[in-house]
Design a binder for these strands. Structure first.
Lengths: 324, 324
DNA sequence: CTGTTAGCGCTTTCAG
DNA sequence: CTGAAAGCGCTAACAG
């Protein structure tokens, strides 16, 4: 068995409550006993039993960060910032993966509600049914949604202004003289894709550029076989790259540009330039944590909109260093 | 307040112990009361208080996966597999980030030892002082190290056979006719880099190929300005890419190949081919989880070596689709 | 300044 | 088959 308060108390010849208070730096405890107790605790290797503390206090100091997967830029960056910011406020962060799997999601949701977590930041991407969460929220469990918003009056979502970002990416491509576009956003996948698709579509139409259907092989072939400048837009690098690899040919008179979100690794070939909308991970994370803290402390000072959208942090431009 | 055992008990007109047993499907409870209790618990929305359960049972069913950062391939892949495999064995996994920061690492280590975690899988990359962990291990806290091994008799580490992998990468480059090498491994950074560096060095020397010093600007310039085939090896894509971008020129008579670990995104230009050693994330993860379970169950059946090395899962070859 | 006491919600003997 | 009672380790009134 490990060392408990009782052991330290016996060792020091005081009561457990005195030890507890001494270790919490209670002002009422004499400095000398504090020293004595703290030394003893250190020497005996005392570690508080979190479960017992939790049971008494009724709430933990751990946030859960519920994500579909680690390993995507959004989730990993936001969780890094969130865990740092939470730590600054005395909370630890546990990142928990739901694999986009409804069963896992609900099991984890149950566990959250069982007192292990003080609150949760949730990316519900790939999860369709979040009624369990709504039940938790009704029971005052603090929850903030992130990235993929939820449209409901009693929840708060924090996300990037995807419409604005998508519009900006199209604009950059237009400035780079693109006159024909392929959009790889899938509006049926989720609301984020939908925003990105619609805004891009709208901007393309407004500027009289041409939209080519990515699913029409003839049109796509034609897309890469004319002169001029073309643009390919998607949420992720991998989608653009897969599209290039299955369709693109390096034509002398053709210039290819691309636009995507979050990140671009490796060289952009055959594209000459890629515009990358880097989300403001830090602001999203810190706002999520602050909001969660506000809810926990019953802070109704700042009545927030159900969905808060933040602008893109930076439009990074990746150039081709090794021309095709 | 939330619904407790007592509430359910009162609602059913039975004792709390009966409710507890009914919900655990205890054989001694009459089928009819079981039904009644389970229905009531469901209807009232009863959720067990994990803290209370933990307090009496003395151990949780949560593994901690302690990583320097999420967002690198190794950590994210392994944690995905580990969390799935743990779930199959009735354990949840919390991924906790130590940011390669000694203070965070030790605080989290303390928390682990406080009963919240049943055991931990640790990637101690970027953490120099792990004496706290050794103390935990002495107190029988189940720990398995992963990726970056620890050489000590009372801990178990699971890692890739980096020497073998590095040797293989060099061999592939040699087969691709590379005669001059640059190694970007940093043997001073950690033991993994050291293994990779030494094995590569050895294989290059054995085969009579030339090693060029990456820190000598003149030598590097010369490296890219001769005809023939050259190879650049590193642990991560980003290092190779940065090296290319600051030094490489596309020369007609020069062929560039590269070798690295874990992943390659985007196009490989100016390299024509990249050999990627993909670690066996799944085996590493599952072995780590199984080992942890073994330790927890006091399973001394399989006396393991302190460091277990696994072979690479796959050598992926990435070709240049859009030639320079 | 410190000890006594009660109780957090649950599991688990021990009785019956 | 079920109830009574103890106790996990800790915190927080309440006394003194």
């Amino acid at each position: 068995m490990s060392i408990t308060l009782k052991d330290v108390a016996r060792f020091c010849g005081v009561d457990t409550s005195t030890v507890s208070r001494a270790l919490h730096n209670d002002v009422r405890i004499k400095e000398s006993t504090k020293q004595k107790v703290q030394k003893a605790a250190e020497r005996l290797g005392y570690r508080p039993n979190i479960a017992a503390r939790l049971l008494v206090e009724g709430h933990s100091h751990i946030f859960w960060f519920l994500v579909p997967t680690v390993g995507t830029s959004v989730d990993s960056r936001i969780s890094e910032y969130a865990s740092s910011h939470a730590a600054r406020n005395g909370y630890d962060t546990a990142i928990v993966v739901h694999h986009g799997n409804q069963t896992d999601f609900e099991r984890l949701t149950n566990n959250m509600g069982s007192g292990l977590a003080a609150g949760a930041i949730i990316n519900r991407r790939d999860i369709s049914d979040i009624s369990k969460i709504h039940r938790l929220v009704e029971k005052k469990f603090p929850v903030v949604f992130i990235d993929v918003p939820v449209d409901s009056t009693n929840t708060i979502s924090i996300t990037t202004d995807n419409s604005l970002a998508s519009k900006e990416l199209v604009t950059r491509c237009l400035e780079a003289k693109a006159s024909r576009f392929v959009l790889l956003f899938d509006p049926k996948r989720n609301i984020v894709e939908q925003y990105r698709y619609n805004a891009a579509l709208d901007t393309i139409a407004r500027n009289g550029a041409a939209l080519i259907d990515a699913n029409d092989p003839g049109a796509v072939k034609d897309f890469f076989n004319q002169n001029g400048t073309v643009a390919v837009l998607a949420s992720a690098q991998s989608e653009i790259q897969a599209f290039f690899r299955s369709h693109a040919v390096a034509e002398p008179g053709l210039t290819i540009v691309a636009g995507c979100f979050d990140d671009w690794y490796g060289e952009p070939n055959p594209a000459t330039t890629v515009f990358v909308a880097i989300q403001d991970y830090r602001s999203i994370a810190e706002l999520a944590v602050d909001t969660l803290l506000g809810i926990i402390q019953g802070n109704k000072m700042t009545p927030m909109a159900p969905i808060v959208t933040l602008p893109i942090a930076e439009y990074r431009v990746v150039h081709n260093h090794f021309t095709t």
